[in-house]
Design a protein around this nucleic acid. Structure first.
Length: 268
DNA sequence: TCTGACCTGCGA
DNA sequence: TCGCAGGTCAGA
């Protein structure tokens, strides 16, 4: 559920409170979240280290902790919680960090779809596509990518190997605002449609970041409070209600094993 | 390129 | 009690 805007919100908040803080204690439960390291190795490797950098590519976040890099993926339900909000979410805490100033940070993941890795080099995320908030996400690059793909445009937007950061909620919203039917084949989009799609990808994601992300289910900010963007969604989970543009009833279909919400009249 | 498995809480 | 929610990934 955490997509690019939610991860970016978390990154910004973590920077504010935990950058340049030293980890003095870690408790990590032996859960399946740990991929290339055991929970015990994780605790030992990071003990006493300083968090020097917190960054993101797509939905992946990484911390530079001196000579090591922690890579987090929040999966469906992963959240970070500041100590002041920890009492709100006492269940499913898998990792607890304590810092030199006695502040705490907790990683919670109800559904355990998240992922934690430890690396000795900066991750290059070579398996991921362009991050739409980065400079190399240009109209020309988007056109090139679209022209190569025979998949439907909804799958295209959600394919992390092509564009990194868009999930189901924002894919639905982007296609609605672009007026593009989710079943359209990526390579068949017209010049004008591509330009609108490009603008909407940037706008929808940027607006969602300004609203601290979408709290549809598990996602909360590190303060333990909901984002605001769910109050501005136009089609996601709005099946049966009138299209905000034309009034026709919005549809819900299952597409590539995922729910797609759209207006059959406005999105052609 | 597409489908199902993994996982847990929630609502019908 | 069962289906659904959707992140990634393995396998078809």
């Amino acid at each position: 559920m955490p997509e690019l805007p939610e991860v970016e919100t978390i990154v910004r908040q973590l920077r504010k409170f935990y950058l340049n803080k030293r980890i003095v204690s870690i408790t990590a439960k032996p859960v399946i979240l740990f991929k290339n390291v055991s929970s015990l190795e994780f605790e030992e490797a990071l003990h006493g280290k300083l968090i020097e950098r917190i960054d993101r590519h797509g939905k992946f976040m990484f911390w530079k902790v001196e000579d090591l890099y922690i890579v987090f993926h929040l999966g469906m339900s992963g959240i970070f919680i500041r100590d002041v909000a920890a009492s709100l979410y006492p269940q499913h805490i898998h990792v607890s960090f304590t810092f030199a100033d006695q502040s705490n940070l907790y990683f919670q993941d109800v559904r355990k779809f998240g992922k934690i890795e430890l690396h000795s080099q900066q991750p290059d995320f070579a398996h991921l596509g362009i991050d739409p908030t980065k400079q190399n996400f240009t109209l020309i690059n988007l056109k090139k990518l679209l022209n190569l793909k025979k998949m439907n445009i909804k799958s295209f937007l959600m394919d992390q190997r092509i564009i990194a950061g868009i999930g189901n909620i924002y894919a639905n919203e982007i296609l609605f605002f672009s007026g593009i039917n989710p079943y359209r084949i990526a390579s068949t989009l017209e010049e004008e449609e591509i330009e609108k799609l490009y603008r909407m990808i940037k706008k929808i994601l940027t607006d969602a970041i300004k609203k601290f992300g979408t709290s549809y289910t598990a996602y909360r900010t590190i303060e333990g409070i909901e984002g605001d963007n769910q109050n501005f969604l136009k089609v996601y989970q709005k099946m049966g209600t009138p299209c905000p543009q034309c009034g026709q009833e919005l549809k819900k279909v299952v597409q590539n094993s995922r729910s797609t919400f759209y207006c059959a009249k406005c999105q052609i």
